[in-house]
Design a protein around this nucleic acid. Structure first.
Lengths: 142, 142
DNA sequence: AATTAAAGATTACATTTGTAAACTAAAATT
DNA sequence: AATTTTAGTTTACAAATGTAATCTTTAATT
């Protein structure tokens, strides 16, 4: 039951590279992040170490160099983060936030079609209103 | 130019209450969070203090008691958080994450209609593909 | 073989965050 | 007026995070 701790913003940078490369050496990651974020090599090494402890990365030895791989998919990790965020915010306003996100994010034709399908389904059973859940029940004055 | 620092998860709990009540005394917030999160009164006081420093709350004295108000709207803060999150994740997969969010979140009929409108607009100019932006340009192998 | 370079491991250290106790001043009660 | 309660302020302290230097071991070069 290897628990997944939350990963921090800096750690995300490392994960994104390894997700995209499929697998990578510390040096691969260092090269890219030195360029992208101006981090020192040892900063990147620290982050890789922490991700290993958090079981987000596994390593396989190749000579005295490690080849790192991610233990969860990028999509899964992204969904988990997004879900965590929305669950911590006002349920009543989630819809409006999604509208704004869709407005400002780049989406492909396929993405849009998928979103439309889900919405059509969702529509069949959607309620008229979603209640605010910012305050524990019987405390909402009204 | 009062800069808005990011607000933490614990601080969000406080903000949500004041957003919902419109304005509140520390005692209002304490009552609710002692119940909801089992925090001690002084924990809540600390959080209110930090939110004041971050200019997320203002207070107006009423006797020796403060009435706290939020300096930004809940919707604005939510949008900012959501945007920050998505900007830090793979652009290519954002669409899929939105699909999953829409699937699992509660949305009202109105929300759904608004989402549908935005999508129809978006569709007119959407590209076939959105490129992965996890790795700085010319480094993407392929 | 001796020297240098590279990869990983260990240690460092300031800031932020979660969580709270202690202190102080004003207000309410006795 | 004296005492108790309350609201706000200050201090506390461990864990997490951002950022890195140093040390150690192994591999590559001279």
């Amino acid at each position: 039951m290897t628990e997944e701790l939350p990963i921090t913003t800096s750690e995300w940078e490392v994960m994104r590279i390894i997700w995209t490369l499929g697998e990578a050496t510390s040096n691969d990651v260092i090269q890219l992040l030195v360029k992208k974020r101006q981090w020192k090599a040892s900063t990147v090494k620290t982050l890789i170490g922490r991700l290993m402890q958090k079981n987000m990365l596994t390593a396989q030895k190749n000579g005295h160099t490690n080849l790192y791989q991610c233990t969860v998919s990028e999509k899964h990790a992204m969904e988990k983060e997004a879900t965590r965020l929305f669950k911590n915010m006002c349920a009543m306003k989630n819809g409006q936030v999604l509208v704004q996100l869709i407005n400002e994010l780049q989406l492909s034709q396929t993405d849009i079609q998928n979103l439309q399908s889900v919405l059509v389904e969702k529509q069949k059973t959607a309620p008229e209103m979603v209640a605010c859940n910012c305050i524990p029940k019987e405390e909402v004055e009204q």
